[in-house]
Design a protein around this nucleic acid. Structure first.
Length: 661
RNA sequence: GCCGGAUUAGCUCAGCUGGUAGAGCAGCGGUUUUGUAAACCGAAGGUCACGGGUUCGAGUCCUGUAUCCGGCACCA
């Protein structure tokens, strides 16, 4: 007998071998009809599978949030079935549920075309209408391998061969089609419903390795209801409007062109934004005891050889040769340069931690397919710094950095999506003891400073040390690594950095590579998408537009602009011979934070009518009052904290505490 | 780099099975002097990404290249 505890706390006993369906039926016939899955001690099982044990038990209907992943997973199976019916010879590989949907990877010589998607979608709907029972079977391992080989499913055979000996080989059948799968699945194809849509085609390497064959991946989205699907599609459409590439063009911030792919032409407004952000972080770094430096853009190959970059990173560096035969490389990062500065003269333990910062223009030869708007470039600016410190200072410096990062993100109104700790890779420098300490220190420091789960990424660290990655999310949900902190035991050694310790001995400092934005350009891309171009006053390239009603007010309008500029604001005038409605509309669409309307009345009274973005009311102030108010509002958050003397908001609580995403 | 797709006016886009390119907005010229989200009129604007091919004829079909977009790989 098995004991089940139901959500309401009641308990009941069932015969051994009872299935979820039996249980549902014992409660109510209507429940059995609606049931699609069961949850036993937190784990999902097929409705028709014999319960493996007793425990906390719950029957899930199709609209349960936990069922959504299974709907998506089943949608991927239905898609695979449709593909194999329509395209005999296409091999199945894997097809999981993912955020918002699913995909399935097929091995097929001829790639699918977009036209195929419509056909596959149609066939999927037919399979749903067939309402084929989904049945779980357990197979013998060797027979399963032999079987899948025999029917030409080499990938499936390979997957089974790679499963641990102890693993049960489960195969799910739906009609004449079957797939090796862990499950669980819905009782029949009908339950998948039709709220799905195939969205994109892509190549994808078998097992994520580019040395392997390239498979054909089909992505789809699936939902519990048509309404959810519609809502999702609308959401995606809305998000696409916030694309930084669109806004960048519409707001005249920057452009890119063929002759300089992966590099930005910043227009005046975009560069104003860039400078505002740069000035902000410069103030923060100054206040945190960093010292800004500037190092050469191009350096001799010899230095890159010694640093190890030539060997490890050479293929991604832009190199040039001079007529005199020198081999030079454009810097892909700033570390070797900073170490050169550290190495001049003598350093004492008293100088540590020494924090050298640089807005370093880095160039990297990125594969063409990697480029993406201003998020992934070939030329970008790191808000880079290297902290030279003793081993016992690592933790404190890391904590300080993470606190700074939190505070900065909070000031910009962006929220951490995730924090990752990349751990020792297979090929690495340094002993395991050193790695133990290093990983532990980063982990502890990060946990102390952010209130968010830290994902551990085994094997993803750099060969020279573990790293912390801080990821932000763009408009359509992709995440980008922005902030980073990397421990480095190797570079100081290779470039012979040393300091004199208290006992007079020469010691190697540890280097912390760290960046808050990562790349200023990428951070700006995130910022543009997060605000959809409607920047807070302190960031807006144009803060106030002075718009006149009639030409009578032109002189006064210019005077208003002048006074606001004198108060430190970025002001434009719109004296065009257009109706005020037209001007309001245009500047509202351009997301100007403040429109100062002036007509004859304001001119006579020495006033301005302020209209703020997102509201349709107006606020009438004297010119002097307006200048004062706006100037105060336009202060950068860090300056505002200093100026008003208010206690600095505790960013530690405000970032990270927010739910990710 | 790999797979799929796109590229037509400054921008957003239309252009059926091949017959010689079109709209809206913006810009320019004029009229209008206007009170909080689009005044009116006019003229102009194109090597249809670039190269090669098929054809009497190519924006449209084939092919090569470039860039961009969606993924994959990469992101030290």
């Amino acid at each position: 007998m098995i004991d089940l505890i139901f959500p309401d706390g009641s308990q009941r006993q069932y015969e051994d071998g009872a299935t979820g369906r039996d249980v549902a039926a014992s409660i109510a016939k209507s429940l059995e009809k609606r049931a699609v899955l069961i949850k036993l001690d937190g784990k999902l099982y097929d409705l028709d599978r014999a319960l493996p044990s007793g425990g906390v038990f719950e029957i899930l209907t199709r609209d349960a949030p936990e069922a959504l992943d299974t709907i998506r997973h089943d949608a991927s199976h239905v898609m695979a079935q449709a593909v194999q019916e329509l395209f005999p010879g296409a091999q199945v590989t894997i097809g999981p549920a993912i955020e918002d949907g699913f995909y399935y990877d097929f091995a097929r010589d001829t790639p699918f075309s977009l036209d195929d998607l419509a056909k596959i979608e149609q066939r999927m709907k037919e399979i749903v209408d067939r309402d084929e029972k989904i049945v779980r079977e357990v197979w013998n391992r060797d027979e399963a391998i032999a079987h899948f080989k025999a029917i030409g499913e080499a990938y499936k055979a390979e997957i089974i061969s790679d499963l641990p000996e102890t693993e049960e080989i489960s195969v799910y059948r739906q009609g004449a089609w079957k797939d090796l799968c862990l499950g669980p699945h819905l009782p029949s194809t009908k339950h998948v419903g039709k709220a799905f849509k195939l969205t994109k085609l892509a190549g994808a390497y078998w097992r994520g390795d580019h040395r392997n064959a390239q498979l054909q991946r089909i992505y789809g989205t699936a939902w519990a209801s048509e309404a959810d699907l519609e809502a999702y599609l609308t959401r995606v459409e809305e998000a696409e409007k916030r694309d930084h590439r669109k806004i960048g063009r519409a707001m005249d911030l920057f452009h890119l062109q063929e002759e300089a792919k992966g590099m930005i032409f910043w227009h005046p407004k975009g560069w104003t934004l860039f400078r505002t952000v740069e000035n902000y972080i410069r103030r923060r770094l100054d206040a945190e005891g960093y010292q800004e430096v500037k190092t050469p853009q191009i350096m001799d190959r010899g230095l890159w050889d010694r640093s190890g970059h030539w060997e490890k990173f050479g293929a991604n560096m832009f190199v040039c040769e001079t007529p005199e035969g020198e081999e030079l490389a454009v810097k892909p990062m700033n570390c070797p340069g900073h170490i050169q500065i550290f190495n001049v003269g003598q350093k004492s333990y008293r100088d540590l931690p020494l924090r050298l910062a640089e807005f370093g223009a880095c160039h990297r030869y990125e594969p063409s397919g990697a480029l993406h708007g201003i998020m992934r470039l070939r030329a970008f600016t790191q808000d880079d710094a290297h902290i030279f410190c003793r081993e016992d200072q690592i933790e404190e410096e890391t904590t300080k950095f993470v606190r700074l990062l939190n505070s900065v993100y909070s000031d910009f109104g962006v929220h951490l999506d995730s924090v990752k700790l990349a751990l020792r890779p297979e090929l690495r420098a340094g002993s395991d003891e050193v790695w133990d300490i290093a990983e532990d220190k980063l982990d502890r420091a990060a946990r102390q400073a952010v209130n968010i789960k830290i994902d551990r990424l085994p094997g993803e660290g750099a060969f020279y040390g573990p790293k912390l990655e801080f990821h932000l999310r763009d408009a359509i949900g992709r995440t980008w690594q922005c902030g980073t902190l990397q421990l480095d035991f190797v570079l100081p050694e290779r470039l012979d950095a040393e300091y004199t310790a208290e006992d007079g001995s020469k010691q190697r400092p540890v280097v912390l590579h760290r960046a808050v934005f990562g790349a200023v350009e990428r951070f700006l891309g995130i910022l543009i998408e997060n605000h959809a171009g409607a920047f807070p006053l302190w960031l807006a390239p144009t803060q106030v537009v002075v718009a006149t009603i009639t030409s009578d007010a032109d002189d006064y309008g210019m005077q208003v602009a002048q006074e606001l500029r004198a108060a430190g604001l970025r002001v434009e005038t719109d004296l065009r011979n257009e109706k005020i409605n037209y001007k309001i509309r245009e500047h509202s669409l351009a997301k100007a934070p403040v429109i100062a309307v002036v007509g004859r009345r304001e001119a006579e009274e020495g006033k301005v009518a302020l209209r703020r973005f997102g509201s349709d009311g107006q606020e009438i102030l004297s010119l002097a009052q307006a200048a004062k108010t706006l100037a105060l509002e336009a202060l950068a958050p860090d300056v505002a904290r200093r100026t008003t003397g208010a206690a600095a908001a505790s960013p530690r609580d405000s970032v990270g505490a927010r739910e990710a995403g």
